[in-house]
């Protein structure tokens, strides 16, 4: 896929992935890949700054989970109430955009 599309919608994708339950970094990448049949293939080096940014903005909150491979607790990211509000807003925004593109015609669904 066009990496610009992924970059431009990164917050929407991450918040959606964390909507159901908290995940840690590596699991987020796997979930993105598994749930989209490999369509979303994150550049891991870009993922962590994005997660920290969403946490700093209050859209995600960090929780400590089980011990990881390095002997330290895994850092799970959970969506906050504010994160859910933002997710809803971003979904509406994206739906409006996709609808507008569709209304332009062509072969888009």
């Amino acid at each position: 896929m066009n990496p610009d599309l992924l970059r431009g919608n990164l917050d929407l994708i991450l918040l959606t992935l964390l909507e159901q339950h908290p995940l840690y970094g590596f699991a987020i990448i796997q979930a993105a890949r598994d749930r989209t049949g490999g369509y979303f293939d994150f550049k891991e080096g870009s993922l962590y700054p994005a997660l920290h940014r969403l946490e700093a903005e209050g859209l995600l909150a960090a929780q400590h989970g089980e011990t990881g491979r390095n002997g330290k607790p895994r850092k799970y990211y959970a969506i906050t109430d504010r994160g859910r509000q933002t997710l809803n807003a971003k979904r509406q925004e994206f739906a409006a955009f996709a609808g507008a593109v569709r209304s332009l015609g062509g072969t888009g669904a």
Partner: peptide, 27 residues
Amino acid sequence: RATWGLPEARRQELWDELEEHILTRAD
């Protein structure tokens, strides 16, 4: 290098996160 220049607390946090990621993926 990945954690260079961050405040110490953040640096350690990111260090642990990336280390965990690399070790898990390596497994």
